[in-house]
Structure formats: C-alpha cells, structure tokens
Design a protein around this nucleic acid. Structure first.
Length: 235
DNA sequence: GCGACAG
DNA sequence: ATCTTGTCGC
C-alpha cells in the first residue's frame, strides 16, 4: 500500500484476550487518523466486507474493485482465515481486519479509496474498522454502517440525500444519511484521509438503486456466500 | 449498578 | 454475522 501510518504488526497484534490492552491501542492509533481530505483523483474505489462460514469458525473477507466513474466491478478477491476472536462491541476491527487485509492484497491494484462495512471514527475511541484499516494501510477510507454504535442525532427526512449530524460527547463524528427514499439511513463516518463533510457525498455518489453503496453492496454479496445464484436473468 | 452495543 | 419463505409496502 502507500503510507502505512504505523507498522501493521503493531497496529493489529494477534488477539490475546486482553480487552483493556486492545482499547488502549485503539486510543493510540486514533491519534494517527487524518480527517482532512487527502485522496487522489478517484479512479478506482474498493469495497470490503466480511462474512462467516462453518458456524463462525471461518472468517471470509471479500474485496471488490470498481471503476469510480461507472461503478462497474472490475476485479474481486476473497480471503478465508480461521476466526481468532469473538465479536466484542467496539473491538470489531481486531476480529475482521486480518481477513480484510488479505482480501485487499488480492486485488490487482491499490484502490484510491476504500469503503468499509462498519464505523469509521464514529466509535467510542474514534477507531472503528474503517479508521483502523486506514491507519494500517495508509489508504483513504470511509465507514458505511447499517446501524449506530455510539452517538445520537435529530430525526431526518424520508428522501434520498436527507441527513443529520451524528454527535457523541458534544462532537460530530459522522452523518446519518438516507441513501434512498424510504429506507433506513446509513451511518457514514470518515475512516482516514477523508473529511467529515466529504464522506456523505462520496457515499451518495455510489448509491444507485439500493440502500447500500455499490462498493459495499457487492463486497457484501461475495462475503456472505450468497454469491451462487443472482437476480432475475431477464432484468 | 443497569443497559447499550458496528458485524 | 448467521439460521430462513413468503409476504407486506413503496
């Protein structure tokens, strides 16, 4: 990748069961997150997501590379690793990042921006999986979650594009964004090298006819093992 | 002390 | 996240 802010081994140590140590590490890595726009002209956008197999004993990550202009999928990569730790709210990245990094490495080229299924800085210590991935790889990232981990917000309108600031301890940490008319809003927050105000527009630009933006939606399909059969052949 | 809690 | 068909609503 480009500018790893820290060595991957230090930023993503093997899970040893020490929750307090993991939280302390998150607090330190959060200081490395850059919330100013600093991404190249968007030519290639990647989407990553994780699924599980065999009763959760196998972690399966998918990475999809799309043409930023047409949103057409260009390449895809899968990675399967034995699951090392349980799901612990707030520590999701330690459980899923190893597989995600391997899937990303499987792509034929480095993306200009990565969409991650989960929070960016909208996290108790400012280091959701999208922010963690950004710090580890040095790549610009944006977190797109389907529900809130922390924070509150005002009610938002029912149409595509309607939004409200997500606040936590008096600070804005993300945006609650309606990606399509009448659907449940997405929780958008920067991961790394993207500004709080910029993230929503990037996500909306990738939302076509579904609630989830194309990068994440396609990665989700691959990771969730329901990639066998698809939609109606006629449409 | 009692809930809440991305995926 | 995952186990799972049809059904209700825009």
């Amino acid at each position: 990748m480009k500018k790893p802010t820290v060595a991957a081994s230090d930023a993503l140590p093997a899970w040893d069961g020490d929750v307090a140590a993991a939280r302390a590490l998150q607090a330190r890595l959060a200081a490395r997150v850059r919330l100013e726009d600093d991404y190249p002209p968007l030519r290639w956008i990647a989407g990553v997501d994780v699924g599980f197999e065999a009763d959760g004993t196998v972690t399966r990550a998918a990475a999809v590379l799309l043409d930023a202009r047409t949103l057409a999928p260009q390449d895809e990569a899968l990675a399967r690793l034995p699951t090392r730790m349980p799901y612990i709210p707030g520590l999701l990245s330690f459980r899923e990042l190893p597989a995600v990094l391997e899937a990303l490495a499987g792509l034929p080229r480095t993306p200009d921006l990565v969409f991650v299924d989960g929070q960016g800085v909208a996290h108790p210590r400012g280091l959701g999986i999208a922010a963690h991935l950004g710090v580890v790889t040095g790549l610009p990232t944006v977190g797109v979650a389907k529900s809130i981990l922390v924070g509150t917000h005002d009610e938002i309108g029912p149409r595509r594009g309607d939004r409200a600031a997500l606040r936590y301890h008096g600070r804005t940490i993300g945006t609650v964004l309606r990606s399509k008319d009448g659907v449940r809003p997405l929780i958008v927050s920067p991961g790394h090298r993207v500004a709080l105000d910029t993230a929503p527009g990037l996500v909306l630009a990738c939302c076509t006819r579904y609630r989830l933006p194309e990068p994440t939606r396609l990665a989700d399909r691959l990771a969730s093992r329901r990639d066998r059969q698809d939609r109606l052949p006629g449409l």
